[in-house]
């Protein structure tokens, strides 16, 4: 049933192959996006984890900023970790970003690599709901400082820190569903692509 849909994964730098493996597990067709013409014929886009400064500079360098913004007007886009930073309208440091979602993001919000961690997250919008927590992998992760309407928080850590948000067809997660075995976030994104 997913046969007709194709999802692109931004493949400039970072953990793009992990997303592609997850999509293939769901039977979704996918393609790597390295240049503007790669956006043709895809129905959704994932911006993977990686270094947000590197990915942002490469997006600017290969003239992808405007084409991705235009693509996002009509299509679903999901950013994980670095991808979330690139989707945010507000970040504290000057670096090239897409500025799409009404969220403010703090980079490296939990500290350095030694402070990276795993924590289970109750996420109501996923299949199974809060009763079935999602394994969150946080690596030098950002966090959501502010989420303004129409963006909404959909996941928090036990201490209340907001770590995932949705706004229309755009999804942002501070953690890495592509590094866990759980496919539910990718399924959730595919529902956004289909709608």
């Amino acid at each position: 049933m997913e046969g007709t849909l194709k999802v692109g994964v931004l493949a400039l730098q970072g953990a793009f192959i992990e997303h592609i493996h997850k999509l293939r597990e769901l039977g979704v067709q996918c393609g790597e996006v390295r240049l503007p013409q790669d956006l043709q014929g895809i129905d959704g886009l994932i911006i993977p984890g990686g270094e947000s400064t590197t990915i942002g500079k490469l997006m600017a360098s290969f003239d992808l900023m405007e084409p991705i913004r235009r693509f996002a007007d009509r299509n679903a886009v999901w950013g994980t970790c670095a991808g979330m930073i690139l989707l945010a309208k507000r970040i504290e440091q000057g670096q090239p970003v897409l500025s799409l979602m009404n969220i403010a993001v703090e980079r490296n919000a939990f500290g350095r690599q030694i402070d990276s961690f795993e924590e289970s997250l109750p996420v109501a919008v996923l299949q199974g709901g809060e009763a079935c927590p999602f394994p969150g992998v946080f690596i030098r992760a950002p966090r959501l400082l502010e989420v303004s309407s129409p963006a909404q928080v959909i996941a928090r850590l036990a201490d209340g820190t907001a770590v995932a948000a949705v706004e229309g067809k755009w999804l942002a997660t501070a953690f890495h569903p592509e590094l866990s075995r759980d496919l539910r976030f990718h399924q959730y994104f595919m529902e956004m692509v289909r709608s």
Partner: peptide, 9 residues
């Protein structure tokens, strides 16, 4: 996982 985020870099 951090090394995975460095890939392609």
């Amino acid at each position: 996982g951090l090394a995975q985020m460095l890939k392609g870099g």
